[in-house]
């Protein structure tokens, strides 16, 4: 049976990247605990709009955990604390208790400037992806799917890496603002497959160079990223990226 909870919501308001920003507080009354976190914020915004106040701005899109758009730092954890890892949209109010103070903050990282409130500019990830996160193929009739045999284990591993949705939780959690888990997952999803090998060296160098250029930090292996990743990417990907990058540089 669903029950209702009441709690204090402390949410970050910031009018653009240059603004200092501050927290707003609001008492949320009788929220059903089967409400999702984003639905709860919708309720907040309906109340704010009804009172003639400016609504709270946050990113969201698919609301089914696959697009990587939602990005809230909830009570000190990106996407909020869940048992197995989930995005903010898959977080439900039953994870919270009556009387809690729930603090909602944006991703805080120099490479992710705040656009407004808790909406941050993550186009840096798109730029890294555009620098090399693809394979070059001729278009035309596709060849038979089984023409290139791929061990099941490699295919599974590549798929696991490809499930990274680029939400940026890794950067948000990292004390160094490093994007290594994202970049390594994107490099790995190609590096593990034969179709990705021809451009593997070029890809690793280009994506790391872009990552450095955009002001992300240096990885110090704290593993905070994998602890908060909603898709359970592991730091084994980072070791693979290091390997690919070092091999590529030694080969130059």
């Amino acid at each position: 049976m669903a029950k209702n909870i009441s709690f204090t919501l402390k949410y970050w308001k910031q009018n653009g990247p240059k603004d200092a920003g501050h927290f707003d507080m609001r008492e949320m009354k009788d929220i059903p605990d089967d409400t999702s976190f984003l639905e709860m914020l919708d309720i907040l915004n309906e109340e704010l709009v009804a009172e003639g106040k400016e609504p709270f701005v946050f990113d969201h899109d698919c609301r089914e955990g696959i697009c990587g758009m939602c990005s809230l730092y909830i009570n000190g954890t990106p996407h909020g604390k869940t048992a197995t890892g989930a995005t903010t949209c898959q977080l439900y109010m039953r994870r919270f208790n009556d009387g809690d103070v729930i603090t909602v903050e944006p991703w805080r990282s120099a490479a992710f400037p705040v656009i407004k409130d808790c909406m941050v500019d993550r186009s840096a990830f798109d730029k890294i992806q555009a620098a090399g996160g693809y394979i070059t193929v001729r278009t035309g009739a596709p060849q038979d799917a089984n023409a290139i045999l791929i061990p099941k284990q490699d295919a599974d591993e590549a798929m696991d890496c490809a499930t990274c949705i680029g939400c940026g939780a890794c950067v948000a959690a990292c004390k160094n603002g490093s994007a290594m888990l994202f970049v390594s997952s994107k490099v790995s999803q190609f590096a593990l497959l034969p179709q990705g090998r021809p451009e593997a060296a070029k890809r690793a160098k280009a994506m790391v160079a872009k990552m450095d250029e955009l002001g992300f930090g240096n990885c110090t292996n704290t593993r905070a990223c994998e602890a908060v990743c909603p898709k359970n990417e592991t730091v084994a990907n980072i070791a693979r990226l290091n390997r690919e990058f070092i091999k590529a540089k030694l080969h130059d």
Partner: peptide, 9 residues
Amino acid sequence: ARGSNRYAV
């Protein structure tokens, strides 16, 4: 890279 804004929690 971390930026000047720190998390409250």
